[in-house]
Computed example of a mutant assay.
Amino acid sequence: MVRHQSSATLAPKVKNYEQVVAYVPTTCKKRLRMMCIEHDRDLNSFIREGIDLMLAKYGQPSLKEFESK
């Protein structure tokens, strides 16, 4: 059984982080939740992976580079 933690416990303990909200179709949310279970990952890790891909596509620094600033 996979335990899901609240977003408060998953949020980094660093002050320079902020929450971002995205609206997706309900069926997409269900698929993402299933992927979390199938791959034993949390939703935040998938979203951060997607953001990194988008940043790379547009020639921007990666999330890791932003974290070091």
Score class of each variant (00 low, 15 high):
residue 18 E to S: 06
residue 9 T to E: 15
residue 51 I to M: 10
residue 42 D to N: 14
residue 48 R to S: 09
residue 39 H to W: 10
residue 1 M to L: 08
residue 69 K to R: 08
residue 68 S to V: 09
residue 35 M to Q: 02
residue 23 Y to T: 15
residue 37 I to V: 09
residue 65 E to C: 07
residue 55 L to K: 05
residue 32 L to F: 06
residue 24 V to N: 01
residue 41 R to F: 03
residue 26 T to I: 15
residue 54 M to V: 08
residue 48 R to V: 07
residue 3 R to I: 15
residue 22 A to C: 09
residue 27 T to C: 11
residue 41 R to S: 12
residue 48 R to T: 07
residue 49 E to S: 04
residue 20 V to P: 04
residue 51 I to E: 00
residue 67 E to S: 13
residue 9 T to A: 13
residue 68 S to W: 04
residue 3 R to F: 08
residue 20 V to T: 04
residue 5 Q to V: 12
residue 8 A to Q: 10
residue 50 G to K: 06
residue 13 K to H: 11
residue 10 L to W: 04
residue 11 A to P: 10
residue 14 V to N: 07
residue 13 K to C: 12
residue 67 E to H: 08
residue 2 V to Y: 01
residue 32 L to M: 09
residue 35 M to W: 03
residue 33 R to L: 11
residue 56 A to W: 07
residue 56 A to E: 09
residue 9 T to Y: 14
residue 19 Q to W: 08
residue 46 F to D: 03
residue 25 P to T: 04
residue 30 K to W: 02
residue 5 Q to T: 04
residue 65 E to I: 13
residue 63 L to S: 01
residue 37 I to F: 05
residue 30 K to P: 00
residue 67 E to I: 12
residue 37 I to K: 14
residue 22 A to N: 03
residue 16 N to M: 15
residue 11 A to E: 07
residue 20 V to M: 12
residue 7 S to T: 13
residue 49 E to A: 05
residue 51 I to N: 00
residue 50 G to F: 01
residue 3 R to A: 09
residue 27 T to S: 05
residue 65 E to D: 08
residue 10 L to P: 14
residue 20 V to G: 02
residue 22 A to T: 05
residue 46 F to A: 07
residue 46 F to R: 07
residue 53 L to G: 01
residue 25 P to L: 10
residue 4 H to N: 14
residue 69 K to L: 13
residue 55 L to F: 03
residue 16 N to E: 13
residue 64 K to E: 09
residue 21 V to R: 12
residue 59 G to T: 05
residue 44 N to K: 05
residue 3 R to Q: 11
residue 61 P to A: 05
residue 65 E to W: 01
residue 63 L to Q: 05
residue 48 R to C: 12
residue 8 A to P: 15
residue 43 L to Q: 07
residue 50 G to T: 02
residue 8 A to N: 11
residue 38 E to F: 10
residue 56 A to P: 04
residue 1 M to F: 02
residue 56 A to F: 06
residue 35 M to E: 01
residue 46 F to P: 03
residue 28 C to T: 03
residue 35 M to C: 07
residue 67 E to C: 08
residue 3 R to T: 08
residue 18 E to D: 07
residue 28 C to R: 05
residue 69 K to G: 02
residue 30 K to F: 05
residue 64 K to T: 06
residue 28 C to F: 10
residue 4 H to C: 15
residue 19 Q to I: 12
residue 23 Y to K: 15
residue 27 T to D: 07
residue 35 M to G: 00
residue 53 L to S: 01
residue 47 I to W: 02
residue 59 G to V: 13
residue 57 K to H: 02
residue 69 K to A: 06
residue 9 T to K: 15
residue 17 Y to R: 15
residue 22 A to D: 01
residue 39 H to V: 11
